[in-house]
Design a protein around this nucleic acid. Sequence first.
DNA 1: ACTGCTATATATAATTT
DNA 2: TAAATTATATATAGCAG
Lengths: 167, 167
Amino acid sequence: MGRKRLLIKRNDNPCSRQIAYSKRGKGILNKATELSTLCGADVALLMFSPTGRLTSYTHKGRVSQIVKLTVWSLSVFLLYFRHLDNEEFLYESLKHLKYEAEILDKIERFDALERKPCELNRKKYEAQEKVWSYSPDVSNIYLIAEAQHHQQFVTKAIQRIEKLKVM
Amino acid sequence: MGRKRLLIKRNDNPCSRQIAYSKRGKGILNKATELSTLCGADVALLMFSPTGRLTSYTHKGRVSQIVKLTVWSLSVFLLYFRHLDNEEFLYESLKHLKYEAEILDKIERFDALERKPCELNRKKYEAQEKVWSYSPDVSNIYLIAEAQHHQQFVTKAIQRIEKLKVM
DNA sequence: ACTGCTATATATAATTT
DNA sequence: TAAATTATATATAGCAG
């Protein structure tokens, strides 16, 4: 889409790489917005620029809000590891984390069990297909805290489902 | 980009909405891939189709792998709530969750502290800007489990940072 | 739904300001 | 060096099978 046909290979010039990112980033953000409004699709887009800056898009739906919050936590953690030697940065991170924790403290009034959206009771094979179609490759996880975190999450999910199966 | 200029408004025809999603979904997926390879950017893209099917893209980097795994957990949970009345679906979910838990069990050999990538020691204001530029709106979270989950995560992050500040 | 086609709208690489 | 312009490549709306 430019004056020259472009090979999709890593651009080794840091300057033009950043320019390309800036342009294409805006483009894809626009596409995500269009897809979301046009088709009513729940879209979450996360982009870390070559210099590490995060840009994200999510429409106002439920799934994306949760994803956004999760990613925020992760991005803070990753920034923390990148800037371990920067005292002042750590202090700023800390302040922000405390603030977020306070907000999160107030969320407990919501309860998912009051919101069972069973209107989408589709055929069994459809449901199964969905579950199996998403198989994450977990071989590249480096943070032990993350692994444990997810492990706990999945374990709780199992317990919860098992409990509801018995009821 | 079609034969007619299109208003970016919700398409109320379910059939053509699905077709538009199918085409534009592929397009944005391609854009995400290009952005990632061309600019070396860490991109995560998550799209739920109008019928609820998840398509995701992440390059092979660390951040996105974690995000992908997180989102997988969330998507299973959300599907679970949508299909509460479907016994067989629950059983299939359960099988898959158990399998994932086993994989996660084997991840503990990685340790983030051996991988401190301090090469990006930039100016303070840059770091601060990054942290503050991402302010998630947490007002639309409906799952109490999710809120607690994130709260715990953030609390642990605080403790860890405070511990390292003292050292 | 799913391909392929084509006319047209959009995105963007190179260039200029 | 960032923003605007321009020439071209790409994406896709409307069709057809």
